[in-house]
Design a protein around this nucleic acid. Structure first.
Lengths: 261, 261
DNA sequence: TGCTAAATCTCGAAC
DNA sequence: GTTCGAGGTTTAGCA
């Protein structure tokens, strides 16, 4: 069955009344919808916004997620996460599309004065997605091979609850001194250093306690802050970590990692 | 000129070789492109990812932003911010589309084994976007009407540089005591409290110094932390702030706000 | 449900 | 160019 509709010339407009009917039916069938057209948008909920008319690309996904994109930039100008309900109406020569979110209560109201492209398709997507060189990969690699940080380091636990939050890794160095490790997959900034400092402060008792930031790089202004707070930095490349993981998993020696994660 | 192409029945596929040509031309003309089809994706750059074949919606914007969406969820599964360059190729019965980012060096490689919809359109979008009840609105409202926090409070400056960053607002209370104010448009969490604490700590001299978190709500576990750190909380609704702003702007008494922002 | 922190976060502004 | 913090951030993982 044909669910896609296109104008026969660029920027010519589809009849809005019919498009409204098609859109309503596509949404009822939980299809993935793409609308390109000139629309204005009002958002009301946690915040409130108003967007005047302009050429936009609107996506409605099969789980009820809504994305309204301008012709530039990564971010949608308006949106709604999945589980939205939709209401379609043709009135006063406009195609009105309303997205309603229950909790928190929010609405996004679109008014189309022209639609250049409409499509409703059933998309099947069971493809597996794998991400490598994330912070999780760094943590896994460090747990399997703690000497990536320093010789003799032993991991005691990961995601240890410390008063203000969670420390990524908690361990003990060769001398038996406790070590708290904070991992960042990007250049560690001031905030990361303070985060570690808060963990160290919250955990510190009478025994000595080291705090180490592990990241591919340290922010420029952070070097001084780090020294002031008596913390340490150890450089580590996330790509290297994911390669170490790949090698270990190939040789089937990754059974012991589960107990830490 | 027709730039949109649609199959004449749902899920029927467009000829990939022709689609590759159309895509290449649309990109050359800096059009906004939508491709719906079955594709696999490899990303390599700051991190690395692999996505197996499945039904996807691909957006390429006029500034070179790339979004690859699965049929569910708010977030794209793969993406690239604006300023990408693209390379199109038809080979081995596949339509290959490569997005290249210069800095940081990253690539996203898409392999289409089927395309259900292709569209390239020139979208004009000069529409103005206005956001209300943001953190900035809260700040503006507080500057114009400091007694929203407490009677007798005077604003000294906003965005005051304190050692580790910026305090939202710096002022003096009725008794002449200095006050640092940290604004959050959402429930203030532990991190917000610690952020304010760091500002207060960095600024504190011999004189007394108050720190106040202004937000619509305070996170549950934060109440104790706040007391421990000797900080204060003042409830304030961002929607109320935007209404106050709207009223003031209507009555034209907003001339004095510029000097603070 | 609430809290905690990551994210290939993006984006814009300031220095 | 780097740094910094906001964002209607969203999302996933846990207690």
């Amino acid at each position: 069955m044909t669910t896609g509709v296109l104008p026969n010339s660029s920027k010519s407009q589809l009849p809005l009344r019919e498009t409204a009917d098609r859109l309503r039916e596509a949404l009822r069938q939980r299809k993935a919808v793409v609308i390109i057209g000139s629309c204005a948008v009002d958002y009301s909920g946690r915040a409130r916004s108003r967007l005047d008319y302009g050429g936009r690309i609107v996506l409605i996904k099969q789980d009820g997620a809504l994305l309204i994109h301008r012709p530039y930039g990564y971010l949608p100008v308006n949106w709604q996460p999945s589980k939205c309900h939709f209401h379609v109406e043709y009135a006063d020569g406009l195609l009105n599309l309303k997205a309603i979110r229950v909790s928190p209560p929010e609405t996004v109201q679109m008014r189309f004065k022209g639609v250049y492209l409409f499509s409703g398709l059933d998309l099947e997507d069971e493809g597996r997605f794998s991400l490598y060189a994330s912070e999780l990969d760094m943590k896994k690699a460090l747990i399997m091979q703690p000497d990536l940080i320093e010789q003799g380091l032993k991991i005691v636990s990961s995601e240890k609850r410390v008063a203000p939050g969670f420390a990524d890794i908690y361990g003990r160095d060769r001398a038996g001194t406790s070590v708290i490790i904070e991992i960042k997959r990007d250049t560690a900034d001031r905030e990361a250093v303070l985060q570690l400092y808060n963990y160290v402060k919250a955990t510190a008792g009478h025994q000595p306690l080291r705090g180490i930031i592990v990241a591919p790089a340290l922010g420029k202004g952070c070097q001084r802050l780090l020294e002031t707070l008596n913390l340490e930095f150890k450089q580590l490349d996330p790509h290297l970590c994911s390669e170490i993981l790949a090698r270990r998993q190939q040789s089937g020696r990754d059974r012991s990692i589960g107990e830490y994660l």
